[in-house]
């Protein structure tokens, strides 16, 4: 664009990160999966990790993450991304290895893999998208679905007498001695998105410093399967999800605090 005024110059305030490919995502309009991926890409750019990172995509709406990041990628079986990441990290300890997993993948079918990766203090970073639903298969109840929330497999609303309460993964993982950095953030407004990015940055720094297991849980939206507009979905996160999935730093090991990030 041509500079319209004399004695001024143009500053690029924001541009698409290089760690994203030019591919158009398959996400529904307004889905904050895209925000979290963009944040990861921005952090990879800023830390100069694009060419030494290896990503592990999971199963669910996150399955095509490998198409969107311009870094080496593999695609794991459902829930097994932390195991696959372990295999890669152990033979290439100097690479930055991260998984990108949703709540069905990580908190249901992949519970064992993520808990044990944390238990081992595996030096990997996990970006965990919690949108309280199975998005890719069309909106079934997830282990994170809120009580009373209607899904296609809980059509009358989640009955906690039958299905129990949602699983709070950040809290759970924070209890593992092997985890170094476990926090929950939200993507429902610009302020929280900035905080989420800072957490993602810290998580990758933790890995860079060899401090062990890091996970950032991100409260995310699913407008389509929640049957809300994108902006209504943001309000749902703020008003309904955050009261149950409280934001916060659940585990920040002393060594991580010492980084003074």
């Amino acid at each position: 664009m041509i500079n319209p005024l004399p004695n001024t110059h143009t500053q690029v305030v924001y541009q698409r990160p290089k760690s994203l490919t030019t591919a158009v995502t398959h996400y529904c309009p307004g889905c904050t999966h895209g925000v979290s991926q963009r944040l990861v890409a921005e952090v990879l750019d800023e830390m100069g990790l694009r060419e030494k990172a290896i990503g592990v995509a999971s199963v669910g709406c996150s399955v095509f993450a490998y198409n969107y990041f311009d870094v080496d990628f593999v695609e794991a079986a459902h829930g097994r991304a932390p195991a696959m990441a372990t295999g890669i990290k152990r033979v290439f300890p100097d690479r930055t290895v991260f998984t990108y997993q949703g709540d069905g993948d990580l908190a249901s079918i992949g519970m064992a893999e993520v808990m044990h990766a944390a238990a081992r203090g595996e030096n990997i970073t996990i970006i965990f998208i919690n949108n309280a639903i199975y998005g890719m298969t069309g909106g079934q109840m997830a282990p994170t679905t809120l009580p009373g929330m209607k899904t296609t497999s809980s059509p009358l609303g989640r009955d906690i007498e039958m299905t129990g309460m949602p699983i709070r993964m950040a809290e759970l993982l924070s209890k593992m001695d092997g985890s170094s950095f476990v926090v929950r953030r939200s993507l429902h407004d610009a302020t929280n998105i900035r905080k989420a990015k800072k957490a993602i940055r810290t998580a990758f720094e933790v890995q860079q410093q060899g401090l062990g297991f890091s996970l950032v849980e991100l409260l995310s939206t699913c407008p389509t399967n929640w049957d809300l507009t994108p902006n209504e979905a943001l309000s749902f996160v703020e008003e309904k999800m955050i009261p149950y999935f409280e934001l916060g730093d659940y585990k920040v090991a002393d060594a991580v605090k010492a980084l003074k990030l």
């Binding site: 500079n3 500053q11 305030v13 924001y14 541009q15 698409r16 990160p17 889905c31 963009r38």
Partner: peptide, 23 residues
């Protein structure tokens, strides 16, 4: 104002934001 909040919330990284700075 070129504050870039739009870009911060954009899920598709579809926005490039510019600002005019007085030289």
């Amino acid at each position: 104002t070129g504050c870039a909040i739009c870009a911060v919330v954009c899920p598709e990284a579809a926005l490039t934001v510019y600002r005019q700075i007085e030289s």
